[in-house]
């Protein structure tokens, strides 16, 4: 049975994520970053940043807090047992640094079916307190049905 598409366009309440210096360091270490910009306050300030710099992929942390609302939305009824992360896209604006608060809004961009696969695509738009878009994420989740 193809998935219901009524929820396309649904917007979830915005979430706010406060970027912590030690969280940036923890994330950067976990993914093997080596640039001192992510760890060393002096190096980051010497390079013109207010604090340590979040690696671009840190978007999964601040925007992920918003996107999970869609993944766990009972209206969508995503079947976790057969869920795989099919694809991911990010486009970035200015780098995010520790101390910033990032507000993210997530929408249901697409619900579609191809054969026994259902596609749930979310779009997250993250902005800093100056109103600049720091990241747009496209999160493609695939559920295999009938299996």
């Amino acid at each position: 049975m193809p998935p219901a598409t009524d929820a396309i366009g649904k917007i979830y309440p915005a979430t706010v994520y406060a970027v912590g210096r030690e969280k940036v360091r923890e994330y950067a270490a976990a993914v093997g970053e080596t640039s001192p910009l992510h760890f060393d306050l002096v190096a980051a300030r010497d390079a013109g940043y207010a604090d340590v710099v979040a690696p671009p992929m840190f978007a999964v942390v601040y925007a992920g807090h918003s996107v999970v609302q869609g993944i766990f939305d009972p209206e969508l009824g995503i079947d976790f047992a057969h869920l795989v992360h099919g694809g991911q896209a990010f486009s970035w604006g200015p780098l995010v640094v520790a101390g910033e608060e990032i507000e993210t809004a997530t929408t249901v961009k697409e619900i579609s079916a191809r054969g026994e696969l259902s596609f749930y695509v979310f779009e997250s738009v993250s902005r800093n307190r100056s109103g600049k878009t720091v990241c747009i994420g496209t999160w493609t989740n695939i559920v295999r049905s009938g299996g």
């Binding site: 910009l37 992510h38 671009p56 694809g87 486009s91």
Partner: peptide, 9 residues
């Protein structure tokens, strides 16, 4: 890190 503008996989 400032040089990566977008990535899709």
């Amino acid at each position: 890190p400032e040089r990566l503008r977008s990535l899709s996989v």
